[in-house]
Each structure stands twice: as C-alpha cells, then as structure tokens.
C-alpha cells in the first residue's frame, strides 16, 4: 500500500517535472522568438526616447538662453540709462568749472594755462559726443524692427540732396539708378545709408570730381543672403591690411589731421544695422582707389533651412543679442 502510494507519487512527480521542464523550454523558445521578432521595435523606441530626451534638453537650454538674453537686454538698458544720465553730470562739472576758472581767474592765467583749460573743455565735449555715439549704437540695437518694402533709390537720392546742400559748391557725380528696392526696416536702413553716403562724401572731398554710387549686385556666392547692395566712391580709400577693426566703434582709418570730423562710429552703426537684418557687410578698398562697401539685408537661406526655421519666422531677425558675438565680418579680414 505504502509502496504503491510512493510509486504513484514518484511517477506523478516525474511527470510533473517533465511537464514543467517542457513548459519552461517552450516558454524560453517563445521568449527568444519574441525578442528576436521585436528587436527593431525595441531599438526604435529606445532611439525615440533618446530623441525625446535630447529635444527636452534642447528646449530647456533654449529657454535658459532666452532668459539670459532677456536679462542681458535688461542690464544693457540699465547701463545705457546710467551712461546717458550719470556720466554727463561729471562732464558738465569738468566743463563748467573749467569755464568758471577761465571767466573768474583768467586774468591771472598765462596763455599756456588758458590753452590747457581749453583742452580740458574740448576733451569733455569729446567724451560727451562719444556718449551720444554709444547711445546711438545701443538705440540701433534696441530699436523696433519692422521690415517693409523700401525704395532704396529714392532714399539714397534724398540723402544725396541733403549732403549736396551742405556744401553746394562741391562737384559730385551721383550715380543712383532708379528702382533699387529692399525689404528692410526703413528707419534703420535710412541710418545705414546715411552713414555710408556721408563717409563717401567725406572721403571724396579732395577729388576734383567726386563720384559716389549706389547699386545692386547679384547675390555673392561667398556670402549668400540675397541681393548685394553697394555704396562706392572714388575717394582716398584705405589699406585693407589695417581694416580689421573697421566696423568697431571709434575705429578710424585716417588721422584727425587728414579728416578732423568723425569719431569712427558710422561703420559700427552700419554693421549693427546690417546684423539686425541678418545680413553681412564687407568692404573692398585700396589707398587712392576709393572704397566699395557692400552689404546684404537677409540671412543665408540655406542656414535657415538647415536650422529648420519656418520661413515665416525668418523675416524677423532674432533679438538684439543675435550675432553680437564674434568679430565683425569684413571681406577685408577674411580675404
């Protein structure tokens, strides 16, 4: 009885173990089959997850960068206000009290002392003008940007009329063909053209007949960005070797004895205006050979395409901080 029971238990156990082993084998096979079958899907979902993570981190970095840009802009505005208001007060003191010494004690001062005080005042005046220049620069960077179709020919011609009126006796041949148009912020483009034409006007002053032209050129393969606008003159020109910082504020190519007016702010303004259009500006010149300033008023379309910027967003350049880093681009330095 006992042995029969034992036998039955042993047999049952053996059958159960066999069944269990078979089931496990089946299950392993099924698992293997499924893993094999589903492998691409698993890999794909892993990639998706990685992409999602990457996207999320890019979004986060983008948000941080925007925060930082807003912060920088805020600080810039505060700095500009401080410059505008607080730096002028001590300058007024320097100028005013120098003048007070001249007025109240001038009779006790010799000619040299009087001349020194005049220099003190001239320097105060110059710093004041430089503050104005810096404010003009910051205004160009912060001004609202409203692109529209601008008649460049009419604009350039009206600036030419203004310049001619400032020295009516100067023989200047203006070459400004009709129908030059651009998509640009009118106020900013006006300022840029005014600076470029005023430069051309100034640096052709020694020519028997000055020639100043405005024209367009087909897109430059080296600097994609649509139509190239060019302001050319037959003035004194300059050596490109020394033009590396031409577009920086207060950079001058000529000595004050040669050209006393100007503090080297015009091209810095031009460059920042062009940047706000996502364009580029460069110059071609040689001593005695005049100068040709070229610029575009749009970004490189292929870059925008690669970056995946929707075309509607491309018409408005990013914030003022955009493109602020890096050396000013000029053909002078890159060629």
């Amino acid at each position: 009885m006992m042995s029969a029971l034992t036998l039955a238990v042993v047999l049952l156990s053996a059958v159960s173990l066999g069944l269990l082993g078979w089931a496990l084998r089946l299950r392993r096979k099924a698992l293997e089959a499924r893993v094999f079958r589903d492998e691409p899907a698993v890999q794909e979902s892993r990639e998706m997850a990685a992409l999602r993570d990457l996207l999320a981190s890019l979004h986060e970095r983008c948000r941080l960068a925007q925060d930082r840009a807003a912060e920088t802009e805020h600080e810039l505005a505060a700095l500009v206000y401080a410059i505008s208001h607080d730096l002028r007060a001590p300058l007024r003191g320097i100028d005013g009290f120098s003048q007070a010494v001249i007025e109240d004690h001038g009779r006790h001062l010799d000619a040299t002392a009087q001349a020194y005080l005049a220099r003190v005042r001239a320097n105060a005046t110059q710093i004041n003008a430089m503050i104005d220049d810096l404010l003009a620069l910051s205004k160009v960077v912060r001004a609202p940007f409203r692109p529209e179709t601008v008649d460049v020919s009419t604009l350039a011609r009206s600036i030419a009329v203004e310049l001619s009126a400032s020295e009516p006796t100067r023989p200047v041949r203006w070459e400004i063909p009709a129908n030059i148009v651009a998509t640009a912020d009118r106020a900013l483009l006006t300022e840029a053209l005014r600076q470029l034409l005023a430069n051309a006007w100034k640096f052709t002053s020694a020519r028997d007949v000055a020639q100043i032209s405005v024209c367009t050129l087909p897109p430059d393969p080296e600097y994609p960005g649509g139509t190239v606008y060019q302001v050319g003159d037959n003035g004194v020109g300059f050596d490109l070797q020394y033009a590396g910082r031409l577009f920086g504020p207060f950079q001058k190519m000529h000595s004050p004895e040669e050209f006393p007016s100007g503090r080297g702010i015009g091209l810095a303004l031009v460059q920042r205006i062009v940047r706000r259009h996502e364009g580029r500006v460069w110059v071609d010149s040689a001593p005695g050979q005049g100068a040709r300033f070229s610029f575009t008023l749009a970004g490189d379309p292929t870059v925008a395409e690669l970056a995946g910027v929707p075309s509607a967003e491309r018409t408005t350049p990013l914030s003022a901080a955009h493109g602020a880093a890096g050396a000013p681009l000029s053909k002078a330095t890159t060629v």
């Binding site: 300058l91 007024r92 100028d95 003048q99 105060a124 005046t125």
Partner: peptide, 9 residues
C-alpha cells in the same frame, strides 16, 4: 536736457 557745454547751459 542740460547741455554739457557750459556756454550752452
């Protein structure tokens, strides 16, 4: 606007 130049001021 207060001019910096005292004569103008």
């Amino acid at each position: 606007r207060k001019p910096v130049d005292f004569h103008q001021f």
